[in-house]
Amino acid sequence: MTTPASTTIPAQLAEIIEDFQALEEVERLELLLEFSRTLPDLPERLAEHPEQLEQVVECQSPLFLTIEVDDSPERRVQLFFSAPREAPTTRGFASVLHEGLNGLPAAEILAVPADVPDRLGLTRAITPLRMRGMSAMLGRIKRRLEQDALSNHVS
């Protein structure tokens, strides 16, 4: 059954959420750890210029991100994250967002509901502070896209 809220979740992110929800709680943590190992490294042009990334201070572990929006009519978004390997929860959340949102049009990302982190079914297994960190990552991405849209309309 599709609810109105689920219709705003892009297919690739909805599939990830379904994968998490199909598992028992302990297995969900294992899946999050698997995601932590698949977070892509920063491209060299960003790795050499960390000042181009913005820290998400709400995360317990250091997490930095940036977005790039192309010039196409869809304004497709590329997401870039940096988090230490010793922070698997933070890396896992970043990787979920990367895999679920990267390459999508900005409008689709902006329509993603704020409760996506809760839909992964990790709220009992992960501390509320860590859950807020993932919500903050999504919120920061959306704010950056809104700022980008405003600056493109002004110029």
Score class of each variant (00 low, 15 high):
residue 154 V to P: 01
residue 4 P to F: 12
residue 128 P to V: 11
residue 19 D to L: 10
residue 94 A to D: 00
residue 144 R to L: 11
residue 22 A to D: 11
residue 1 M to S: 15
residue 117 P to I: 00
residue 20 F to W: 07
residue 148 D to S: 15
residue 5 A to I: 14
residue 131 M to E: 02
residue 21 Q to D: 03
residue 151 S to R: 15
residue 28 R to W: 09
residue 155 S to P: 07
residue 93 F to C: 05
residue 35 F to C: 00
residue 150 L to D: 10
residue 141 I to M: 08
residue 123 T to R: 04
residue 66 T to N: 09
residue 87 A to K: 12
residue 4 P to G: 05
residue 64 F to M: 14
residue 32 L to P: 07
residue 21 Q to E: 07
residue 145 L to M: 03
residue 133 G to C: 11
residue 126 I to M: 06
residue 108 E to F: 00
residue 73 P to N: 13
residue 129 L to H: 06
residue 137 M to L: 10
residue 27 E to D: 15
residue 34 E to W: 10
residue 21 Q to N: 10
residue 15 E to G: 10
residue 57 V to W: 04
residue 135 S to C: 06
residue 41 D to M: 02
residue 57 V to G: 07
residue 63 L to N: 00
residue 132 R to V: 03
residue 147 Q to E: 15
residue 75 R to L: 13
residue 128 P to W: 07
residue 68 E to K: 14
residue 41 D to E: 13
residue 71 D to R: 13
residue 54 E to K: 09
residue 139 G to S: 11
residue 135 S to P: 05
residue 106 A to Y: 01
residue 17 I to Y: 06
residue 131 M to W: 04
residue 19 D to H: 13
residue 64 F to G: 02
residue 65 L to C: 08
residue 8 T to L: 08
residue 138 L to R: 01
residue 155 S to G: 14
residue 115 D to A: 07
residue 149 A to P: 04
residue 113 P to T: 08
residue 142 K to D: 01
residue 5 A to F: 14
residue 102 N to D: 13
residue 116 V to I: 12
residue 76 R to M: 10
residue 98 H to W: 13
residue 126 I to L: 14
residue 76 R to C: 10
residue 73 P to Q: 12
residue 2 T to A: 12
residue 65 L to I: 11
residue 26 V to K: 12
residue 128 P to I: 07
residue 12 Q to Y: 06
residue 33 L to Q: 14
residue 89 T to L: 14
residue 46 L to R: 02
residue 125 A to T: 12
residue 113 P to D: 11
residue 55 Q to Y: 08
residue 55 Q to D: 13
residue 121 G to N: 04
residue 145 L to C: 03
residue 70 D to G: 14
residue 83 A to W: 04
residue 48 E to C: 03
residue 22 A to P: 06
residue 155 S to Q: 14
residue 120 L to G: 07
residue 144 R to A: 02
residue 123 T to G: 06
residue 17 I to M: 02
residue 27 E to P: 00
